[in-house]
Nucleic acid binder design. Structure first.
Lengths: 117, 117
DNA sequence: CGCAGATTTAACCATACGGTTGAATGTTAG
DNA sequence: CTAACATTCAACCGTATGGTTAAATCTGCG
Protein backbone atom coordinates (compact mmCIF):
# COMPACT_ATOMS: atom_id res chain seq x y z
CA UNK A 1 0.00 0.00 0.00
CA UNK A 2 1.77 3.07 -1.22
CA UNK A 3 -0.24 5.51 0.83
CA UNK A 4 0.24 3.92 4.23
CA UNK A 5 3.93 3.45 3.54
CA UNK A 6 4.26 7.14 2.80
CA UNK A 7 2.39 7.92 6.01
CA UNK A 8 4.11 5.78 8.57
CA UNK A 9 5.06 8.93 10.46
CA UNK A 10 2.58 11.16 12.23
CA UNK A 11 1.76 14.36 10.44
CA UNK A 12 3.38 16.73 12.97
CA UNK A 13 6.66 14.84 12.85
CA UNK A 14 6.61 14.89 9.07
CA UNK A 15 5.92 18.61 9.03
CA UNK A 16 8.79 19.11 11.47
CA UNK A 17 11.11 17.28 9.09
CA UNK A 18 9.89 19.07 5.97
CA UNK A 19 10.01 22.56 7.43
CA UNK A 20 13.38 21.85 8.99
CA UNK A 21 14.72 20.61 5.65
CA UNK A 22 13.48 23.80 3.99
CA UNK A 23 15.02 26.08 6.61
CA UNK A 24 18.46 26.01 5.00
CA UNK A 25 19.22 27.97 1.83
CA UNK A 26 21.66 25.38 0.53
CA UNK A 27 19.08 22.65 0.84
CA UNK A 28 16.43 24.74 -0.85
CA UNK A 29 18.91 25.38 -3.63
CA UNK A 30 19.61 21.66 -3.93
CA UNK A 31 15.91 21.01 -4.29
CA UNK A 32 15.66 23.56 -7.08
CA UNK A 33 18.48 21.76 -8.80
CA UNK A 34 17.08 18.27 -8.63
CA UNK A 35 13.67 19.59 -9.59
CA UNK A 36 15.14 20.74 -12.89
CA UNK A 37 16.52 17.27 -13.47
CA UNK A 38 17.69 14.25 -11.50
CA UNK A 39 21.36 14.45 -10.59
CA UNK A 40 24.16 12.47 -9.05
CA UNK A 41 25.55 13.52 -5.67
CA UNK A 42 28.70 14.81 -7.35
CA UNK A 43 26.70 16.96 -9.75
CA UNK A 44 24.65 18.30 -6.89
CA UNK A 45 27.72 19.20 -4.86
CA UNK A 46 29.73 20.86 -7.61
CA UNK A 47 28.15 24.38 -7.47
CA UNK A 48 28.65 24.72 -3.72
CA UNK A 49 31.76 25.73 -1.87
CA UNK A 50 31.28 23.13 0.82
CA UNK A 51 32.73 19.65 0.93
CA UNK A 52 31.07 16.63 -0.58
CA UNK A 53 30.56 15.24 2.91
CA UNK A 54 28.61 18.36 3.87
CA UNK A 55 26.38 17.93 0.84
CA UNK A 56 25.94 14.29 1.76
CA UNK A 57 24.62 15.42 5.13
CA UNK A 58 22.22 17.87 3.50
CA UNK A 59 20.95 15.06 1.33
CA UNK A 60 20.35 12.97 4.41
CA UNK A 61 18.24 15.75 5.90
CA UNK A 62 16.26 16.04 2.70
CA UNK A 63 15.85 12.27 2.61
CA UNK A 64 14.62 12.23 6.21
CA UNK A 65 11.89 14.61 5.08
CA UNK A 66 11.31 12.34 2.08
CA UNK A 67 11.86 15.30 -0.24
CA UNK A 68 14.32 13.35 -2.35
CA UNK A 69 14.57 9.75 -3.45
CA UNK A 70 17.78 8.02 -4.45
CA UNK A 71 18.14 5.43 -7.14
CA UNK A 72 21.32 3.38 -6.93
CA UNK A 73 22.98 3.11 -10.28
CA UNK A 74 26.16 1.16 -9.82
CA UNK A 75 28.95 3.16 -8.30
CA UNK A 76 26.93 6.34 -8.26
CA UNK A 77 23.33 7.19 -7.61
CA UNK A 78 20.65 9.37 -9.02
CA UNK A 79 18.88 11.80 -6.75
CA UNK A 80 15.46 13.01 -7.73
CA UNK A 81 12.91 15.32 -6.20
CA UNK A 82 9.94 13.92 -4.34
CA UNK A 83 7.68 16.93 -3.96
CA UNK A 84 4.76 15.08 -2.38
CA UNK A 85 5.57 15.98 1.24
CA UNK A 86 5.47 19.64 0.34
CA UNK A 87 1.74 19.31 -0.17
CA UNK A 88 1.04 19.03 3.53
CA UNK A 89 3.41 21.90 4.27
CA UNK A 90 1.74 24.05 1.66
CA UNK A 91 -1.68 23.22 3.01
CA UNK A 92 -0.53 24.04 6.53
CA UNK A 93 0.66 27.45 5.47
CA UNK A 94 -2.24 28.19 3.18
CA UNK A 95 -4.56 27.99 6.16
CA UNK A 96 -3.17 31.42 7.05
CA UNK A 97 -3.81 32.91 3.66
CA UNK A 98 -6.92 34.64 4.92
CA UNK A 99 -4.87 36.25 7.66
CA UNK A 100 -2.25 37.71 5.41
CA UNK A 101 -4.96 38.82 3.04
CA UNK A 102 -6.88 40.37 5.88
CA UNK A 103 -3.78 42.15 7.08
CA UNK A 104 -2.96 43.36 3.60
CA UNK A 105 -6.48 44.66 3.32
CA UNK A 106 -6.04 46.53 6.57
CA UNK A 107 -2.76 47.96 5.35
CA UNK A 108 -4.36 49.04 2.10
CA UNK A 109 -7.13 50.72 4.01
CA UNK A 110 -4.55 52.53 6.07
CA UNK A 111 -2.67 53.70 3.02
CA UNK A 112 -5.90 54.82 1.36
CA UNK A 113 -6.72 56.89 4.38
CA UNK A 114 -3.23 58.42 4.36
CA UNK A 115 -3.60 59.29 0.69
CA UNK A 116 -6.90 61.05 1.18
CA UNK A 117 -5.65 63.16 4.05
CA UNK B 1 8.12 53.15 4.62
CA UNK B 2 6.38 50.01 5.69
CA UNK B 3 7.50 47.85 2.81
CA UNK B 4 11.23 48.48 3.02
CA UNK B 5 11.14 48.14 6.78
CA UNK B 6 9.52 44.75 6.43
CA UNK B 7 12.17 43.79 3.91
CA UNK B 8 15.37 44.81 5.60
CA UNK B 9 16.53 41.21 5.50
CA UNK B 10 17.40 39.35 2.30
CA UNK B 11 14.78 36.91 1.14
CA UNK B 12 16.83 33.74 1.75
CA UNK B 13 17.56 34.72 5.33
CA UNK B 14 13.90 35.51 5.92
CA UNK B 15 12.87 32.16 4.48
CA UNK B 16 15.42 30.46 6.71
CA UNK B 17 13.85 32.12 9.73
CA UNK B 18 10.27 31.39 8.71
CA UNK B 19 10.82 27.75 7.84
CA UNK B 20 12.85 27.25 10.97
CA UNK B 21 10.12 28.81 13.07
CA UNK B 22 7.59 26.47 11.50
CA UNK B 23 9.72 23.36 12.05
CA UNK B 24 8.58 22.91 15.64
CA UNK B 25 5.14 21.55 16.50
CA UNK B 26 4.80 23.67 19.62
CA UNK B 27 5.49 26.84 17.65
CA UNK B 28 3.03 25.87 14.95
CA UNK B 29 0.49 25.26 17.68
CA UNK B 30 1.21 28.65 19.19
CA UNK B 31 0.60 30.28 15.83
CA UNK B 32 -2.75 28.52 15.53
CA UNK B 33 -3.63 29.90 18.92
CA UNK B 34 -2.77 33.50 18.28
CA UNK B 35 -4.40 33.29 14.88
CA UNK B 36 -7.70 32.57 16.60
CA UNK B 37 -7.24 35.62 18.76
CA UNK B 38 -4.45 37.76 20.20
CA UNK B 39 -3.22 36.49 23.54
CA UNK B 40 -0.92 37.33 26.40
CA UNK B 41 2.21 35.26 26.95
CA UNK B 42 0.66 33.63 29.97
CA UNK B 43 -2.41 32.60 28.02
CA UNK B 44 -0.23 31.23 25.27
CA UNK B 45 1.86 29.20 27.68
CA UNK B 46 -0.95 27.71 29.74
CA UNK B 47 -1.86 24.76 27.46
CA UNK B 48 1.70 23.50 27.22
CA UNK B 49 3.59 21.38 29.68
CA UNK B 50 6.76 23.41 29.30
CA UNK B 51 7.89 26.31 31.42
CA UNK B 52 7.02 29.90 30.73
CA UNK B 53 10.66 30.56 29.95
CA UNK B 54 10.58 27.91 27.24
CA UNK B 55 7.51 29.51 25.69
CA UNK B 56 9.23 32.86 25.89
CA UNK B 57 12.05 31.40 23.80
CA UNK B 58 9.60 30.01 21.27
CA UNK B 59 8.06 33.44 20.98
CA UNK B 60 11.48 34.91 20.33
CA UNK B 61 11.98 32.48 17.46
CA UNK B 62 8.59 33.39 16.04
CA UNK B 63 9.39 37.05 16.46
CA UNK B 64 12.72 36.65 14.69
CA UNK B 65 10.75 35.30 11.73
CA UNK B 66 8.35 38.24 12.16
CA UNK B 67 5.45 35.80 12.47
CA UNK B 68 4.18 37.48 15.62
CA UNK B 69 4.05 41.05 16.81
CA UNK B 70 3.89 42.13 20.43
CA UNK B 71 1.98 45.04 21.77
CA UNK B 72 3.04 46.17 25.24
CA UNK B 73 0.06 46.76 27.44
CA UNK B 74 1.32 47.75 30.81
CA UNK B 75 2.63 44.85 32.84
CA UNK B 76 1.64 42.31 30.23
CA UNK B 77 1.65 42.25 26.48
CA UNK B 78 -0.53 41.12 23.66
CA UNK B 79 0.85 38.77 21.07
CA UNK B 80 -0.77 38.69 17.68
CA UNK B 81 -0.17 36.81 14.48
CA UNK B 82 1.63 38.47 11.61
CA UNK B 83 0.98 36.09 8.75
CA UNK B 84 2.62 38.20 6.05
CA UNK B 85 6.00 36.40 6.02
CA UNK B 86 4.20 33.15 5.29
CA UNK B 87 3.36 34.50 1.87
CA UNK B 88 6.92 34.14 0.63
CA UNK B 89 7.18 30.68 2.16
CA UNK B 90 3.93 29.62 0.55
CA UNK B 91 5.06 30.97 -2.79
CA UNK B 92 8.37 29.17 -2.46
CA UNK B 93 6.64 25.86 -1.87
CA UNK B 94 3.93 26.38 -4.44
CA UNK B 95 6.59 26.50 -7.13
CA UNK B 96 6.76 22.74 -6.67
CA UNK B 97 3.05 22.20 -7.04
CA UNK B 98 3.49 21.08 -10.61
CA UNK B 99 5.95 18.44 -9.43
CA UNK B 100 3.72 16.90 -6.87
CA UNK B 101 0.84 17.04 -9.32
CA UNK B 102 2.98 15.43 -11.96
CA UNK B 103 4.01 12.71 -9.55
CA UNK B 104 0.46 12.14 -8.42
CA UNK B 105 -0.54 11.82 -12.05
CA UNK B 106 2.15 9.20 -12.53
CA UNK B 107 0.96 7.36 -9.44
CA UNK B 108 -2.60 7.46 -10.65
CA UNK B 109 -1.52 6.09 -13.98
CA UNK B 110 0.28 3.30 -12.18
CA UNK B 111 -2.75 2.45 -10.10
CA UNK B 112 -4.97 2.52 -13.15
CA UNK B 113 -2.69 0.06 -14.83
CA UNK B 114 -2.78 -2.17 -11.75
CA UNK B 115 -6.54 -2.07 -11.67
CA UNK B 116 -6.91 -3.11 -15.27
CA UNK B 117 -4.58 -6.05 -14.91
C1' DC C 1 6.89 52.75 49.24
C1' DG C 2 6.57 48.02 48.46
C1' DC C 3 4.43 43.92 47.05
C1' DA C 4 2.29 40.92 43.51
C1' DG C 5 1.95 39.65 38.86
C1' DA C 6 3.83 39.10 34.03
C1' DT C 7 7.63 38.24 31.42
C1' DT C 8 12.56 37.98 30.39
C1' DT C 9 17.30 36.98 31.46
C1' DA C 10 21.02 34.15 33.09
C1' DA C 11 23.25 30.06 33.75
C1' DC C 12 23.35 25.57 32.84
C1' DC C 13 22.58 20.96 30.38
C1' DA C 14 22.12 17.50 26.65
C1' DT C 15 21.57 17.07 22.04
C1' DA C 16 21.44 18.59 17.16
C1' DC C 17 23.42 21.29 13.40
C1' DG C 18 26.54 22.38 9.77
C1' DG C 19 30.98 22.29 8.72
C1' DT C 20 35.76 20.12 8.31
C1' DT C 21 39.39 16.31 7.23
C1' DG C 22 40.68 11.69 6.60
C1' DA C 23 39.65 6.90 6.40
C1' DA C 24 36.42 3.39 4.74
C1' DT C 25 33.29 1.38 1.49
C1' DG C 26 31.45 -0.13 -2.78
C1' DT C 27 31.69 -0.41 -7.88
C1' DT C 28 33.46 -0.22 -12.43
C1' DA C 29 37.17 -0.54 -15.58
C1' DG C 30 41.73 -2.12 -16.91
C1' DC D 1 43.73 -8.10 -8.71
C1' DT D 2 44.09 -3.46 -8.49
C1' DA D 3 43.55 1.33 -9.48
C1' DA D 4 40.28 5.03 -9.85
C1' DC D 5 36.08 6.96 -8.85
C1' DA D 6 31.65 8.06 -6.14
C1' DT D 7 29.86 8.38 -1.87
C1' DT D 8 29.51 7.72 3.05
C1' DC D 9 31.26 7.26 7.68
C1' DA D 10 33.83 8.68 11.76
C1' DA D 11 35.70 11.85 14.61
C1' DC D 12 36.01 16.30 15.77
C1' DC D 13 34.78 21.43 16.32
C1' DG D 14 32.04 25.61 17.41
C1' DT D 15 27.53 27.18 17.72
C1' DA D 16 22.44 26.77 18.08
C1' DT D 17 18.39 24.53 19.99
C1' DG D 18 15.03 23.40 23.40
C1' DG D 19 14.58 22.58 27.86
C1' DT D 20 15.26 23.53 33.00
C1' DT D 21 15.45 26.53 37.50
C1' DA D 22 16.37 30.73 39.78
C1' DA D 23 17.11 35.50 39.77
C1' DA D 24 16.07 39.96 37.61
C1' DT D 25 13.07 43.37 35.57
C1' DC D 26 9.05 46.07 34.74
C1' DT D 27 4.42 47.73 35.85
C1' DG D 28 0.13 48.54 38.15
C1' DC D 29 -1.92 48.86 42.66
C1' DG D 30 -3.03 49.41 47.60
Amino acid sequence: MVKSAARRKALPARLDAVFHALSDATRRSILRGVAARAKTVGEIARPYRVSLAAVSKHLKVLERADLIRREKRGSFQIVRLNAAPMRAAERWIRYYERFWNRQLDALQELLDREDSR
